[in-house]
Design a protein around this nucleic acid. Structure first.
Length: 584
RNA sequence: CGGGGAGUAGCGCAGCUUGGUUAGCGCGCAUGCUUUGGGAGCAUGAGGCCGCGGGUUCGAAUCCCGCCUCCCCGACCA
């Protein structure tokens, strides 16, 4: 790479934040001249930005190469047929950029490439001996986001690495998936990111069928939970509630029905029982709240009503419930549904009306045998106390529907949970045969019979990764690039009106000969303050200053991350910088 | 789609309430002189469809009507 000279570099740093920039990565990438907005959610990458983007891509290429993946480049403009073949032309909805050619035929700007990759493999490969194969590309993707935001973090055009694995059996798919998972860990570690891997789905679908890589930052769009006592991390939807040990029902007090007028809420109910002189105090966690929903399996026209029991101190988290019941649709009951099921007394629904009427009743995992509850007595203004699970009612199973809270015990038994935010930078997914079925991609097996190929898809948001790195690696002065991502290894700054700039250029050339990537500030007539401030904003890891000490043969070596600075001799400068670069 | 805010020079903004010089300030840019270790000083200068369309008026950046766009929060989406 030639020496980058600030005197001619296409770069103008901004003294002020652009009015629309809110998050640190957006502000700093704009001020540092890395990107410029062209349209909502669409950005130009200026020279320094392009270098950074390429550095991220280079790391990805190396690690993809290590797992045997082969890079290709596919069209970004595709006729609708490809997406119609899999139903995504309609499924994708408004997020798909659509356009017509001069003949009126429908086209899309590609959002992902499952279809074309599958089609290509079908055209070239036909024997089990050809598999497995992993193909990928790094290119622009298009999604007409309802609300692009935060600069390149969520754009309508963005750079993505997408790879696809093709295997002839499930074991092969699992291997391809595991290889990607390992490659992703290496990639994000090399990029200097602090990240977690979370299961993207609930247990029902199988824990490893899909995982997200989240870069932890306060500005992230995705909420996840982690543990204070271990490295456990998961999407809220995937958190399993640890069940307390089941107890004996022997000797527990009899269930008693109480008239409880004017107790429409859990709070009023608890107050009522605490005022009833029963010799103990109750909390909302002693009550069992029964929420009624209806579910519909895909392809079915009929809704099934079911009851969901959760401790009264918790709300039903519809996202968690939906994930638990996936792929069924879930809705709350409306008035008409209550009218159709008169045995459901709104506000006073208890387990037994549900069970007696053969409706499915599932409960929170905390509701185990031997636990006693205050819950609805299935008639207006009445609740039942000491209704014991396993004695007075037996649920049809458990469900992860209750909300997850800070302080809840971690599912792995170590520590408690707290919520964190992250940016989704990678997603690995065992697709299975959705696309190979659509295109009838078969391989002839050893037994001479065709076998349907199974797929995985694996994405990394390359441009988003750049922003995620900035989110994690910056201070109040600017970016602090990890070396592998930085647009240069060293920023040589010449200050003064003497020979400093000439010397800076000479040192820059020598460093370049040694394989060091160099940005040199050779601007004339720019004051030292401006140059230092720009260097800090741009965030190159090592800074070498050729300034006022030059006449005595002294230069200054600064480390952007630590802020440490050291005087060094002119003669040793090249060696010192080279070794600083080599040390990372 | 719901809520909030904003469109004035490359960037950041004031002016609008109460219509009236030639539309202004800072940064940046150009030229000259001075300055050179933490966003320099002086002087001169270039740069504007005041988002678009219509209306009111002798006169509109400013008032009225309509439209468009953008930003932020949420919903949706991955």
């Amino acid at each position: 790479m030639p020496v980058l000279r600030m005197s001619t570099l296409f770069l103008r740093t901004l003294r002020e934040d652009p009015a629309d920039a809110e998050v640190p990565s957006h502000r700093l990438m704009a001020r540092g001249g890395y990107v410029r907005r062209a349209a909502p959610g669409i950005y130009s990458w200026l020279p320094l930005g392009k270098l950074v983007l390429d550095n991220v891509a280079a790391v990805i290429r190396e690690e993809m190469g290590r797992i045997g993946a082969q890079e290709m480049l596919l069209p970004t403009l595709l006729p609708s047929e490809y997406y119609e073949a899999t139903g995504r032309w309609t499924e994708y909805g408004d997020a798909l950029f659509r356009l017509k050619d001069r003949k009126g035929a429908d086209y899309a700007l590609t959002p992902t490439h499952e279809e074309l990759f599958t089609w290509l493999v079908k055209g070239e490969y036909s024997s089990y001996k050809d598999f497995p194969v992993v193909l990928y590309q790094i290119q622009e993707k298009f999604r007409d986001e309802a609300r692009p935001r935060a600069g390149v973090l969520r754009g309508r055009e963005f750079h993505m690495k997408d790879s696809y694995s093709f295997d002839i059996d499930d074991e092969g798919l699992q291997r391809s998936y595991d290889l990607h998972r390992e490659a992703y860990v290496r990639i994000f570690e090399r990029l200097g990111l602090s990240f977690v891997v979370v299961s993207a789905q609930s247990g029902a679908m199988g824990g490893s069928a899909s995982e997200e890589f989240l870069a932890e930052t306060p500005t992230g769009e995705d909420t996840f939970v982690r543990s204070t006592g271990s490295d456990y991390a998961a999407n809220v939807e995937a958190v399993h509630t640890p069940a307390p040990p089941a107890g004996s029902v022997e000797g527990l007090p009899e269930a008693q029905v109480h008239r409880t007028p004017e107790t429409p809420t859990i709070e009023t109910l608890v107050d009522f029982f605490n005022a009833a002189g029963l010799g103990r105090t109750f909390t909302a966690a002693d009550t069992l709240k029964n929420v009624l929903v209806k579910t519909r399996e895909p392809g079915s026209a009929d809704w099934e009503v079911m009851g969901v029991g959760v401790p009264g101190d918790r709300e039903v988290d519809m996202k968690r419930l939906e994930a638990a019941l996936h792929p069924a649709e879930v809705q709350l009951l409306d008035e008409a549904d209550f009218e159709a099921h008169p045995f459901l007394v709104k506000g006073y629904v208890g387990p037994n009306a549900l069970l007696a009427n053969k409706l499915r009743y599932v409960v929170d995992p905390r509701v185990v045998e031997g636990t006693a509850w205050i819950t609805g007595a299935d008639k207006p203004d009445h609740h039942v106390m000491n209704l014991v699970c396993g004695r007075d009612f037996t649920p049809d199973g458990t469900v992860e529907a209750a909300d997850v809270r800070e302080g809840d015990p971690s599912p792995d038994g170590q520590g408690t949970l707290y919520t964190a935010r992250g940016i989704e930078i990678g997603h690995i997914f065992q697709l299975g045969r959705k696309y190979t079925d659509a295109f009838e991609l078969d391989a002839l097996g050893a037994d001479g019979k065709p076998k349907r190929v199974t797929m995985g898809s694996y994405g990394i948001g390359v441009s988003r990764v750049v922003a995620a790195v900035v989110e994690q690696c910056h201070d109040e002065k600017g970016v602090v690039w990890p070396r592998e991502v930085a647009p240069a290894d060293v920023h040589v700054v010449g200050t003064g009106k003497g020979e400093q700039i000439d010397v800076a250029l000479r040192i820059a050339e020598e460093l370049e000969q040694r394989g060091v990537r160099v940005l040199v500030d050779d601007r004339k007539g720019v004051s030292p303050g401006v140059k230092f401030t720009d260097a800090e904003l741009l965030g190159v890891p090592t800074c070498l200053i050729v300034g006022k000490g030059l006449s005595e043969g002294r230069l200054e070596l600064r480390d952007r991350a630590s802020g440490e600075q050291e005087e060094i001799g002119l003669e040793e400068a090249v060696d010192r910088v080279a070794s600083a670069v080599a040390a990372g």
